[in-house]
Design a protein around this nucleic acid. Structure first.
Length: 955
RNA sequence: GGACGUUUAGCUCAGUUGGUUAGAGCAUCUGCCUUACAAGCAGAGGGUCACAGGUUCGAGUCCCGUAACGUCCACCA
């Protein structure tokens, strides 16, 4: 088969993938006599598109999967997508608003959900197309979606069982409320941002003539949220605070409302902060909520779902029961105002009333909803909760005793820190897109939980004519993804897949979702999955945590920064205009578009060239060290694309030199030194690459492959083979080299395949048949992973080649220093070499001839006078090249002087080291021997240099 | 406020249990279109390993402290 002259991955990558998929090669073998290896893909958002982080993680997963598949393991990569409740609903709502000027409420729930499914059908293929282009060998026939029938059933099952066990409950509590999305969100979805705000100092007049011990007839309260005073039900002072002891239990007149509220004593009030007096708004502040509970205060909800002041506040007692006759009326002028308008108005009126003492600038960190992007509001609502505190205990244990390992280990601390202070998890969302909560209410509001309305009636003995309404809320997206490892394998049925592949082997994910997902998966899985002995099963044995991929300046990639790079654009390339268009389309803040397009044009004046999937994957692996963040560098990608090109061309070279018809397995005696050398190096490389995969050191996987292939195989071995093929070796010897060439290449392709699936397939399909290791119909994907058998370590060959390399480098140095053109053949003199060194030099002269550009090498004894030459120490010997008049005397003297200086410094430090009694007595013998040997070499070399200088000066 | 991470060549990063003279890629400079590859070949320059102390015969590596940057958590009247 002919190979094209240049490496053009776009010509073959997609075709190869299609073939693999059509042939069903991504499916697990289900050979249960073999070890199982499985990975559950963290499900990406179904309507989204892959970013670099996905490409990074998926490359690592696919590398692991391909490695284990080649090892013969029963290997499954389970894939699928997530319905991503809030995110998806938002996208569809925005589209609806943009294209039809409709809200979801205009459509109604049922119609709206239909639209979301339609959108999923339209855009859901995006992700899977990208994954195919990345070469991911996932079992597409098992693809799942968190809202599909099977997974929905698992969700229902889990919810009902947890409810029946008392681990899910419903309650009126203060929750994080997103007023823009009008839903509760969990603690994790709140993002604290530092903002510059104000602190307002407000006087609350004391009623009935009460006075503080300082004689004041008011209490001064400091607050960052003056508009919430309409919901105040007390002002707290510290019980030990002498200033206010006399007024505890007295009443205050709530400004703007005139309502009477008590002064209470509570330790929440800190004598040293603010004024020492804190206004208590139990329905709109998490601390105040606790204070309210302790002091049995009423709770007044003053806000609507979208954070406008209510016409009529809702008043509850401490236990959340509605109080009918509590007078908490909000003055009419504030009703219906947005919370921030209400703030301005309240401040204005307080000022006018003389109750605003002063305002200070105040830096605070304010909670924002991570999706809606507006400040969240603590709100008193009915929500569903999971008792995470109960589920969390075994989940902590599993990591503590090593049933689950984090790589890198430091993330375990992060996990423990969060798990040890686990709050109950609010799982209900006031959305439409998601798993609807299986709870029904009767007229009195009594709740019934079961898998269906029919089951509710039979389970709770309710007659047909009792009207039931279903809870309108849906579950947090992470509730269904927490079941991912087992729900995708068919749970609650005990399927063969569940038996074979659970627990999964490893989870590859970013540290940013350790809490959202990893921790919750561990909790849920351990509660529901038990092994044959009834012990909890973990969802995965190892969590490999990746860093974030940032841009070249270390900034997080984001749409609004306009620094996002689509992995597919690196694979297939993109022209400048399309890239700019892509980066500035559908912006949330269109005003940034111009800046982004300028920067993009500057950074990518030529657009992005096509690099191919293999180069991208190799680059991602090379970057994957120790879970740290990665600053993406296009140059690295270029470099590794060049590596692919190198592989391509090395293969072309091999094909040019091999006659497949006559190629046969050689007699070992016919192996040349070069053959023995590269076979030995390959054996080492196999061991190192394999170890690096097992250790999750993908940077080393890439590094070792690169080093072996380029620095040993291409730079040295291929050059050696030229001497052999063009020299006078016998046909059998030439065959041995040709065979080694093909065999090493073929084995390297298997070695590299997990990282670079495509180029290795192309080359393997050509080389393997030459060795009788498969036909062109076979695939490297299922060929055995190299284990080093058939290759021998050969220390002698490596040593001899090391000498040849040193000799070559030495001559090349001299040539460069003497500025002799590469085309000019040189005559070299080797003076003072050992017998072994002389032997290597003579025997393998043909290699040196080619590599160093030599016409002859003459041996000379140490100290033997030679015609005027330029020389360089080589180990304890020296290499001389006759100077003729090629050289500038001064330059040569300068070079030698520098060398002398360096050697003298090294000798001095070596001597003082060996003179040091402590070193000689305490250091291990090996180190001392090394130091002695080095000192000897340095001394010998210095001697050569000095005599050279002398000879030159004598001229 | 608490915890963690990072700091090594111009840039992006390796550097295993402490052990000879600290590495790679890219970039730079010099010379080469040498019949696999100019996406290449050969060669060169470039580092006080953030700073300060300590342990040790020996520290980029271990310990203490400082600084800068980053991340997470908590609090914020």
């Amino acid at each position: 088969m002919e190979m094209d002259k240049t490496y053009e991955p776009e010509k073959f990558e997609s075709g190869i993938y299609q073939k693999w998929e059509q042939e069903g090669l991504f499916k697990a073998s289900m050979d249960t006599s073999k070890p199982s290896f499985s990975i559950a893909l963290p499900p990406p958002n179904v309507t989204g598109s892959l970013h670099m982080g996905h490409a990074f993680q998926q490359t690592i997963m696919d590398t692991l999967i391909r490695y284990h598949r080649m090892k013969g393991d029963n290997t499954l990569w389970q894939c699928g997508t997530d319905h991503a409740g809030i995110a998806t609903q938002m996208v569809v709502e925005r589209k609806l608003a943009r294209e039809e000027h409709l809200t979801r409420h205009d459509l109604g729930r049922e119609k709206f959900i239909e639209r979301v499914w339609k959108w999923k059908a339209e855009s859901g293929g995006n992700i899977t197309r990208q994954m195919r282009r990345l070469g991911d060998s996932v079992d597409w026939t098992r693809e799942r979606f968190t809202m599909d029938e099977g997974l929905s059933r698992a969700v229902l099952e889990v919810f009902v069982r947890l409810y029946d066990e008392g681990l899910i409950y419903r309650g009126k509590r203060l929750v994080n409320w997103d007023p823009k999305l009008r839903t509760a969100i969990s603690d994790l979805e709140v993002e604290n941002r530092d903002v510059q705000g104000h602190m307002w100092y407000i006087k609350y007049p004391l009623c009935d003539g009460a006075k503080t011990s300082e004689g004041k007839d008011y209490l001064m309260v400091a607050t960052t949220r003056p508009e919430t005073l309409f919901g105040d039900t007390a002002v707290a002072v510290n019980p030990a605070d002498e200033r206010f002891k006399s007024v505890v239990g007295k009443m205050l007149e709530l400004p703007l409302c005139g309502r009477r509220i008590p002064v209470i004593a509570d330790i929440h009030a800190d004598m040293t902060t603010g004024t020492g007096c804190v206004k208590i708004t139990p329905a709109h502040d998490f601390n105040d909520y606790q204070v309210g509970k302790r002091n049995k205060l009423a709770m007044i909800n003053i806000l609507t779902e979208d954070a406008h002041l209510r016409d009529t506040p809702e008043c509850y007692d401490t236990d959340g029961r509605l109080i009918e006759n509590y007078d908490a009326a909000i003055p009419e002028k504030y009703r219906g105002l947005d919370r921030f308008e209400a703030r301005d108005a309240a401040v204005e009126d307080l000022k006018a009333a003389g109750l605003l003492d002063h305002i200070e600038d105040h830096a605070l960190s304010q909670p924002f909803g991570d999706r809606g992007g507006v400040p969240i509001e603590p709100m008193l609502t009915d929500q569903w909760y999971v008792k995470a505190s109960v589920l969390g205990k075994p989940a902590v244990e599993a990591v503590k005793d090593g049933r689950i390992k984090f790589v890198p280990k430091q993330y375990e601390n992060m996990y423990f820190a969060w798990m040890n202070d686990l709050q109950d998890w609010c799982i209900s969302r006031q959305l439409w897109w998601g798993h609807r909560i299986p709870a029904w209410y009767d007229k009195e509001g009594k709740v019934y939980v079961a898998r269906s309305e029919d089951e509710v009636r039979s389970k709770y003995g309710l007659a047909k004519d009792i009207a039931l309404t279903r809870d309108p809320d849906v579950l947090d997206t992470w509730f269904s993804s927490a079941l991912w490892t087992f729900s995708t394998l068919g749970w609650p049925e005990n399927t063969p897949e569940l038996q074979a592949f659970h627990p999964t082997s490893v989870l590859v994910t970013g540290f940013d979702i350790i809490f959202f997902w990893v921790a919750r998966m561990i909790m849920m899985t351990m509660h529901f999955m038990k092994d044959e002995n009834g012990n909890p099963q973990v969802p995965f044995k190892t969590v490999y945590v990746t860093g974030l991929i940032r841009d070249e300046l270390g900034k997080k990639m984001s749409k609004s920064k306009g620094n996002v790079i689509d992995p597919l654009d690196m694979i297939d390339g993109i022209d400048k205009d399309s890239l700019i268009k892509k980066r500035t389309a559908n912006m949330m803040q269109p005003q940034l578009a111009e800046k982004i397009s300028k920067r993009t044009a500057k950074q990518f004046p030529e657009g992005i060239a096509a690099h191919g999937t293999d180069a991208l994957r190799f680059t991602l692996c090379a970057f994957a060290s120790n879970g740290r963040d990665i600053n993406w560098d296009m140059k690295r990608l270029d470099g590794y694309r060049n590596f692919c090109n190198k592989i391509w061309n090395a293969s072309r070279f091999a094909l040019m030199n091999v006659k497949p018809e006559t190629l046969h397995k050689p007699d070992p005696k016919d192996y040349s030194l070069a053959d023995r050398f590269i076979r030995s190096k390959l054996k080492t490389a196999i061991a190192e690459v394999t170890q690096a995969i097992e250790d999750y050191r993908f940077d080393m996987v890439a590094g070792k492959l690169y080093e072996f292939f380029w620095n040993e195989f291409c730079d040295w071995y291929l050059e050696f083979t030229k001497s052999i093929f063009r020299g006078e070796a016998t046909e059998e010897q030439k065959n041995a080299t040709a065979y080694t060439l093909v065999e090493v290449l073929e084995t390297s392709m298997r070695l590299a395949h997990p990282v670079m699936p495509f180029i290795t397939e192309v080359i393997w399909k050509i080389t393997a048949p030459m060795l009788g290791r498969g036909t062109a119909q076979d695939t490297v994907m299922t060929a055995p992973y190299p284990d080093g058998s058939g290759f021998e370590h050969d220390a002698e060959a490596e040593e001899a080649v090391a000498w040849l390399k040193d000799f070559t480098v030495c001559v090349r140095n001299l040539r460069a220093e003497m500025k002799v053109a590469p085309s000019v053949k040189l005559a070299a003199i080797l003076r003072g070499a050992t017998g072994e060194e002389q032997d290597y030099t003579r025997r393998y002269f043909s290699y040196l001839e080619n590599l160093a550009g030599l016409s002859e090498i003459r041996m000379a004894k140490a100290g033997e006078e030679q015609p005027l030459s330029s020389g360089k120490p080589l180990r304890k010997a020296e290499v001389l090249i006759q100077m003729k008049d090629l050289i500038n005397k001064d330059d040569e003297l300068k070079r030698l002087a520098a060398m002398q200086q360096k050697l003298e410094a090294n000798i001095k430090s070596g001597e003082s080291r060996l003179k040091n009694e402590a070193f000689v007595s305490k250091a291990p013998a090996k180190i001392i021997e090394g130091a002695k040997a080095q000192l000897e070499v340095n001394r010998a070399q210095l001697q050569k240099v000095l005599s050279q200088i002398e000879a030159l000066k004598a001229l």
